[in-house]
Amino acid sequence: MKITGKEVAYVAHLARLALSDEEIEQFTGQLDAILAYVDKLNELDTEDVEPTAHVIPMGNVVREDAVDTGLPIEEVLANAPGTQDRFFRVPRII
C-alpha cells in the first residue's frame, strides 16, 4: 500500500473535503493505484537534475506602483452566497 485510509482522511481534511467512509475507501484504492503507477519516476536518477517550475526562461515581470479604481461594491458582492451591508458573511469564525 502506498497510502492508507488514515492518510486519505488527513488529506481530505487538509483539502476541506467532507468525504463519507465509502468515499475514503474508494479514494484510498484509486489513489493507491495511481501512486503505484507514479512510482515509476523513481526508476530515474534525478540527483543532479534541476527541477523545472517554468518552461520558458523568464523573469522580472513587474508593473508600476499605480492605483486603479477597484470593482464597484455591487459587483464585488454579486456572486456571494452570503452578504451583509458591504461584507461577505460567513458562519462565525470563533
Binding site: V38, L41, L44, T46, V49, E50, P51, T52, A53
Partner: peptide, 14 residues
C-alpha cells in the same frame, strides 16, 4: 518524493 521529483523529470522530458 513526488512534487520535486516530478519537476526534475519534467526537466528531462524538456
Amino acid at each position: 518524493a513526488y512534487y520535486r521529483k516530478a519537476q526534475q523529470v519534467r526537466t528531462l522530458i524538456m
